[in-house]
Simulated assay, not measured.
Amino acid sequence: MFVVVGNHDIGFHYSDMLEYVLMETRELDNFPRITPHLASRFEKKLSAPPVQLISIRGNHFVLINSMAMEGDGCSLCSRAVAEIDKIANILKCSRGSSLCKGADKVEHYSRPIIMQHYPLYRHSDSECTEPDAAPLPDRHLRFEERWDCLSKESTEYLVEKLLPRAALGGHTHHSCLLRHSFVPTNEHKIEFVEYTVPSFSWRNRLDPKYYLFTISPDEIKMFKCALPREATLQVTAILLCIALLLYLKYYYHCGKTYYTQRLWSDKKV
Rank of each mutant, 00 (worst) to 15 (best):
K92A: 10
E145Y: 00
K45P: 03
A48S: 08
L53C: 03
S15N: 01
V4M: 03
P164T: 13
M67V: 11
H188S: 10
D16F: 06
V235S: 00
L162D: 00
S66I: 05
G96K: 11
G11A: 02
C74M: 12
Q116V: 04
Y252Q: 14
V159A: 04
W147N: 07
A82L: 09
A68C: 03
L63T: 05
I114M: 08
E130T: 13
F42M: 10
I215R: 05
P164E: 04
K268A: 03
C241W: 06
P119T: 08
K161A: 12
I242Q: 12
F182D: 04
R203C: 06
R79G: 15
I190W: 05
K44N: 13
L246V: 10
P228C: 10
E130L: 09
S55F: 05
S124N: 01
H37S: 12
V3G: 07
G11I: 02
M1S: 10
G102F: 01
E107L: 08
D85G: 15
H173F: 09
F2C: 07
K105V: 11
S47Q: 11
P198E: 02
R262P: 04
I56M: 09
V81I: 15
K209M: 15
S151I: 06
N89Q: 13
R95K: 13
M222S: 13
N89M: 06
F223P: 00
K209D: 09
